[in-house]
Design a protein around this nucleic acid. Structure first.
Lengths: 136, 136
DNA sequence: TCCTACGATGGACGCAGTCCAGGTCAAGAA
DNA sequence: TTCTTGACCTGGACTGCGTCCATCGTAGGA
């Protein structure tokens, strides 16, 4: 049983075979899958699972803060199961590979008060872009 | 004549009424419009202009580095005419308003070599999220 | 003024994501 | 164990954003 599923159960989630499979797909592979990729992998284990259910389940995991949504290009959103350790993303402009990276210092502290325009700023997402070794 | 259009002409762009109108729409209003909003405003000045032309023109301006594409939500891309001064974005989670902001220090220097995994890192985009004064 | 290659048009198409009416089932109660 | 019920799942239609393409129009050089 995955940690993710355990945490969700602890929050009063009804555990169904569909939700289990989606959680396992995300937990098993620490890459950043699109919803359709999650669906494709889920179908291997549970052929009847529908696309709508995958979208719903991913959306619920995101609202519960157990999974992060990242959209680094204008295309499909990707889902990041590594929601409990703060991190940023490094994206290859060639092949689209995404890696989790850790920065020194807190990005929020780099935004001076006079640049906040009265906003209550609560988060900062950094996307680093470049070429991976294979694409360079 | 807008600066933007002057620069584009200098790059050998054929200047048509459609391209002029798109450039003027972007230049006139320093907000971050979606392609459809650009189209809606362009139609007021040139009723026959097509959606495809607006998309093509925006895409060309982006490839020429004269306009930036920003996608802060998973929805429509927005176009930022302020491509020549490095800046980051502050987005209201309530209403979606986007403001250009300037950080202290260079975000690239916050990514240590051992976190680069052999990538040639060339850019960093920061999206700050929070609530604007009206939404707070 | 003429020519022609580059640009514009608009309608069809594709992908990502959402919605909905109706059928199904997990989990608590007895 | 069986019953009950409301939460959940399904599949197909639908929407929004963006792209493609065949055809027509025109900016700008000769």
């Amino acid at each position: 049983m995955s940690d993710l599923l355990e945490r969700l159960r602890g929050r009063g989630w009804r555990v169904t075979s569909q939700r289990r499979v989606v959680a396992e797909v995300l937990d098993g592979d620490h890459v950043h899958l699109t919803a359709d990729e999650v669906h494709a992998r889920a179908v291997r284990r549970l052929p009847e699972i529908s696309r709508a259910t995958v979208y719903n389940t991913l959306g619920e995991m995101v609202s519960l803060g157990e999974v992060l949504e990242v959209s680094t290009d204008g295309r499909a959103k990707r889902y990041d199961p590594n929601a409990h350790r703060p991190h940023q993303h490094l994206v290859c402009s060639g092949c689209g590979t995404i890696r989790d990276v850790h920065t020194t210092g807190d990005p929020l502290s780099q935004l001076p008060a006079e640049e906040r325009f009265g906003f209550t700023v609560s988060a900062a997402e950094i996307t680093y872009r470049g070429l991976c070794p294979s694409c360079a």
